[in-house]
Nucleic acid binder design. Structure first.
Lengths: 246, 246
DNA sequence: TGCCCTAGTTGCGCTGTGCAACTTATAATT
DNA sequence: AATTATAAGTTGCACAGCGCAACTAGGGCA
């Protein structure tokens, strides 16, 4: 949202029938796995006197456009596509943050979604200011980067939620391009969780959950060819009856 | 929110620096267990020509008041207290619903929380129109009652979320007044889930999770006195490593 | 005192997991 | 062509938690 189009939350007095409205925004926490690391996409805030947090890194997002966005989720999908070119991905609502102080321009509430996309599908925004969109390693760079608004806190919540759900869901399957082998999937689990997992237990667990369908053998990626799998249903993750152990 | 104070989402044209803002509301799904049934609190929409869904039952909630509410959660707490007199309870964000069509007055987004309160703490709103606030048995009446706005859908999501989390958390402990016995707690689990649970497994599970502290023996509630427990930490539920079994 | 009811315990089999050793299939090397 | 290295995938075993069912413990009530 550039400086040319600043919203105003003051109303004309109109009888006794008016009051001020908060700003409504949508932000997206976009996760992917790049080079064996869990990463998120950040964008740089525009510079300018009227801009809040100019030059700071922030979650991609912005004001809901009531003339374009039919729903909040459609708005999130639009913002995801604008930054990554990815149109289909796993998208889940993370929650909402709202209050008087989180945006210097006034009372605002943001609806936050988080997306999981396979690295291979990404076509980062090109052109004018491509340098202002970048991937950040969650473990290496995120803690030492303070983001605009309350986005540091939102991001922390998102990472916490992702890690917690990975313990008992098939979510990491949305981070790896199909078809994938079980060892590849296991590696993603390990990267997200930051710890190693037992191989045989992992295999039985995944196959018992019955959310994978066999595809083609994957040659050339390692020594012995591995069975390639696809998701039976890309619209929803599977819930396991137990957490991962150890 | 009565008809005397209707918000307007039209802005004065002011250079090229304005656009319309969505309405921002907060709704609360208030759960309790009354007479061995999982219930939620609903309020009746006011009647009047300018009112949407006049006379229909709806979730308690309304517009965020930027002059009063510091945060969304504070707003939810306020609305909970206004309807029930309960000031402390378990309160969790459920999610947000927003779009062009969910409110006939215009583009709106609601931030929904859900609260768990013990029946004994409740002092329903008295006075003027107490008949317009009422408890509904989730299983008996809710499916056949169609609520205002998209509240039926929101409520369904809330029930689903509660039931799903009860499988692996100590959430039902927030629905029963302290001190409580393990059989009492188990009964609440069974009421929420709608199925019976094995006694011995339940006990080991609860005690192993180490979130209960022994209080006083509860005499007179049944034949044999039962150990009474309190929560070690009322601020957070405990997560179990496994779901409840069949 | 004897019966009933509810609280709480005990024993046993099953299942899924952690751990570690093993087999199988290919690529790279000699 | 045989050998070695490496990753995929399997097997066996001990252990922990749960479902199931029978049991003991403690108090009310006739």
């Amino acid at each position: 949202m550039s400086a040319r189009k600043l919203p105003v939350n003051k109303f004309p007095k109109q009888g006794r029938a008016t009051f001020r409205l908060p700003f409504t925004t949508v932000d997206v926490v976009i996760f992917s796995v790049l080079e064996d690391a869990l990463c998120i996409l950040l964008v740089r805030r525009p510079s300018g006197d009227a801009e809040p947090y100019p030059g700071k890194w922030a979650l991609p997002g912005g004001f809901v456009n009531v003339d374009v966005d039919i729903t909040l989720e459609a708005c999130a999908t639009r913002k995801l596509a604008e930054k990554t070119g990815v149109s289909t991905s796993y998208l889940e609502q993370l929650g909402s943050w709202g209050g008087a102080d989180r945006d210097p321009r006034g009372w605002s509430a943001t609806h936050v979604y988080f997306a999981l996309i396979p690295a291979e599908h990404i076509q980062l925004e090109r052109g004018a200011n491509a340098a202002d969109v970048s991937w950040f390693d969650v473990d290496k760079f995120v803690n030492e980067t303070d983001l605009a608004f309350d986005h540091s806190s939102i991001l922390a919540t998102a990472v916490e939620r992702l890690r917690s759900k990975v313990e008992y869901t098939s979510l990491p399957a949305f981070l790896v391009p199909e078809p994938f082998s079980l060892p590849q999937l296991q590696r993603v689990y390990e990267i997200v969780l930051g710890r190693s997992i037992d191989k045989s237990g992992f295999r039985t667990r995944m196959l018992a959950a019955d959310f994978l369908v066999e595809d083609v053998y994957l040659d050339g990626t390692s020594n012995r060819p591995a069975m390639g799998y696809r998701l039976r249903d890309r619209s929803m993750p599977v819930l396991f009856p137990r957490n991962l152990g150890r």
